[in-house]
Write a protein that binds this DNA or RNA. Structure first.
Lengths: 195, 195
DNA sequence: TTGACAGCAGAACGAACGTTCTTTATAGTT
DNA sequence: AACTATAAAGAACGTTCGTTCTGCTGTCAA
């Protein structure tokens, strides 16, 4: 999108979306853009779609892409050299949820207690993003129900039996006697540093 | 919303929204909900609106509310050493973005590269939630600009001078010669496990 | 056994919608 | 002065949408 006019329209669309979380009809977009022609609205949206700021559902509805939520890079002119140890990505309000959660109805958050997975970078107080399902693969970090207890461990196999391996040498490997019921699989992790 | 049937419909709607970022027409919602009657779709949406999961724009379009994005947070934490019995996890709800981000305009997301903070449970590929500001306290994990490079380290003090301490013995402590410019302070961390 | 209601299906309809085509105005270029 | 591109307006049209109303079926209490 080389055009400055379209950038202006994009801003207006973004502002509208921030307010209403939807892209309205062409008629309403005429007001939003400050023009009077539906066909011109369509031309604008088509160009924004070419620039991958919006796209269409199979039903024809316009929806924002990830690009749509991107914000201009650090306003500070900081430096020209490419950072080595760290690369910057842009994100806005929406992105975190979207990044971590594919199927909202199957996802639950569980606060982690204890240090048993510390070598996997999972600390006490971290929040685990768990997708509820009954099956998992070897190597997955799972929330399992062993003898009516929740526990977060790596799923492994030993002599044909499933075992739960902690990521901390100070904790024992769990070899379930009865049933090993899997509550869900760890798909994400959230940590908040206190102020 | 006391009805458990409506809860099921809500889940389906949330899953659809996660995919398409929009609430579709009644006709399409018939398929999504698995029913055949547009009038019944409307009845369902009306009830969801009463329960404040969705609302309408002045144009009549359905849009999600904040409640819509809330995730269940399990009451019992996952235990490592001493497990707690499983209880039904219908506790608090919360929104991930809200938890991590106080001031969107000052918050940026940065993907972490390298292993220099691994002992602090920060791994390569994790996403750091950084609040941009120029000042930090001793002990904070900061994103600093050293010699035109971004770097993520713990801020410390040595002989009256600020130093940047990695959380990995294989990496050297950084003792900035010139200015130590602080880009921001780490306030959160996000990790996504690949499928 | 009746009747009341919840849960849905289906039709009917006017308004709104997206699309396409044609036309106009302005600005810049040759 | 003639040409061209851009930006927009406007009309025309077939489709789709949301709404309302009416009808059907099962359940459960009276």
């Amino acid at each position: 999108m080389t055009d400055h006019k379209d950038t202006e329209y994009l801003y207006k669309l973004q502002d509208y979306y921030a307010d209403w979380k939807s892209i309205p009809s062409y008629a309403r977009l005429c007001e939003v853009f400050g023009i009077a022609s539906k066909s011109w609205v369509k031309a604008i949206l088509t160009r924004l779609a070419d620039a991958e700021f919006i796209e269409r559902t199979p039903d024809g509805a316009w929806i924002p892409t990830r690009q749509f939520f991107a914000r201009p890079l650090a306003e500070s002119s900081v430096q020209a050299g490419m950072p080595v140890s760290v690369t910057a990505t842009q994100g806005d309000f929406f992105v975190i949820d979207e990044m971590l959660i594919d199927t909202p109805s199957k996802t639950t958050l569980i606060t982690v207690k204890g240090e048993s997975m510390i070598d996997a970078g999972i600390h006490d107080g971290d929040v685990a993003v768990v997708e509820k399902r009954m099956t998992a693969n070897i190597g997955d970090i799972v929330v399992a129900i062993v003898d009516d207890d929740f526990t977060l461990k790596t799923l492994d196999r030993e002599n044909g039996a499933f075992i739960l391996r902690p990521a901390n040498p100070a904790f024992p490997v769990i070899r379930p006697q009865g049933t090993l019921e899997i509550y869900g699989v760890l798909i994400g992790l959230i940590r908040k540093y206190k102020r």
